[in-house]
Design a binder for these strands. Structure first.
Lengths: 155, 155
DNA sequence: TAGGTTTTTTAGGAAAACCTAACAAAACAT
DNA sequence: ATGTTTTGTTAGGTTTTCCTAAAAAACCTA
C-alpha cells in the first residue's frame, strides 16, 4: 500500500506527463508545493517500489502499475470535485478539498458520490433542482413549498 | 495549528468524556487503535499546547480551547456522516469515511454539505427524492423521465 | 569553450506519529 | 498486607515527510 503522499506524487506526475510530456523534478516540486530534495527522495522511493522509472538528471516516467494507481486517484478527485461544484463550492476550493478527500474513501462512498453526481446532472429537471438548492442556500426556504422554519445557510 | 492526528485525539477525548466522565489513557488507545505509549506522547504534546490538562496516573481533561476544537471537529464529522448516509453509504462506512474527511475541509465546503443535508431532509418531497435516488442507483434510470442511456451504478 | 545560471542531487537534520520492551504505580483480591 | 494483575510511563527506535546548505551536473550564451 502507498501512503497519501505517495499517491499525491503519482497523481502530480500523471498530470505533468499529460500536460508537458516530460516530467522534471522541479515541476513536481512546484505542483506539490515542496522543495526539490523532497521530490528526489520520494521519487527514489517510488522507483524502488516500481511505481516510476527514474533516471538521474533526466526525468521520471510512470510504470504501468504507477499509472494505474494515479488514474484511480485522479478519477476519485474528479468525481469529488464535480460533487463539490454541484453544491456551489467555488472551483478552486473544490479542487483543493478534493485533494484532501481523494484518499482512503471506501469504494462504496466514492461510488455513491458518483451516483449522486450522475443522478443530479442527468435529472430531467436538473436546472430546476439546482435553482431550488441555490435559493435554499440564499434564503433557507424551499422555494416550492410552504412555511419551513428557515436555517442559517451562508457559505 | 493542530495536526489531523491531534484533532483525532481531542475528538476521542471529548467522546470518552461524554460517555464515561473520566478519560483514561487506555480508553483513548482503544478508541483510536493505537498503543498506550503513543497516547501518553500525544497527550503530553496536547498538554504543552494547553489543549488538555494531564496529570500522570490520573487522567485527561479538555481545556476550554481543546474542547472548542473537539466540538468543531465532531460537528463536521456529524454533518459529513449525515450526508453519506443520505446517499446510502452504510452507517459504519459513513462513520469511518467521515473520520477521513472531517479534517482540513474549507469552511465553505462544510457549509455547503450542511446546506445539502438540510435541503434534502427538509424538502417537502423528501422521501420521493430519496426513492428516486435509490431507484437510480439500482437501475441507472431516472424513474420519472424518459429514455436515459443508463450508467454503471453498483456500490 | 569558459563562465554563469539553473537544476538536480547529496548530506545531514527535524518533527510527527507510531512501535516494543522494560519498568513503575495503582488497583484489586485473597 | 502482600502478591498479582492491570494500567501507565519511560527509554529507545523506526518510518515518513519535510527542510537547509552545499556540491555536482546540465544548460546557455557570449
Amino acid at each position: 500500500m502507498l501512503s497519501r503522499k505517495a499517491e499525491d506524487y503519482l497523481e502530480a506526475i500523471l498530470n505533468i506527463t499529460e500536460e508537458k510530456g516530460h516530467v522534471r523534478i522541479k515541476d513536481i516540486a512546484i505542483t506539490l508545493g515542496v522543495r526539490p530534495p523532497s521530490v528526489v527522495e520520494m521519487v527514489n522511493r517510488l522507483d524502488k517500489k516500481d511505481m516510476v522509472e527514474y533516471r538521474k538528471y533526466d526525468g521520471v516516467t510512470l510504470t504501468k502499475e504507477g499509472r494505474a494507481i494515479a488514474v484511480v486517484v485522479k478519477e476519485r478527485h474528479d468525481i469529488i470535485k464535480s460533487f463539490l461544484e454541484i453544491i456551489n463550492v467555488p472551483e478552486k476550493i473544490a479542487d483543493t478539498d478534493a485533494c484532501t478527500m481523494e484518499h482512503e474513501l471506501h469504494a462504496i462512498t466514492t461510488t455513491q458520490i458518483k451516483n449522486l453526481v450522475i443522478f443530479v446532472k442527468d435529472a430531467p429537471e436538473y436546472p430546476q433542482w439546482l435553482k431550488h438548492f441555490e435559493d435554499f442556500c440564499a434564503t433557507g426556504e424551499h422555494p416550492c413549498a410552504g412555511k419551513e422554519p428557515g436555517h442559517k445557510t451562508n457559505a
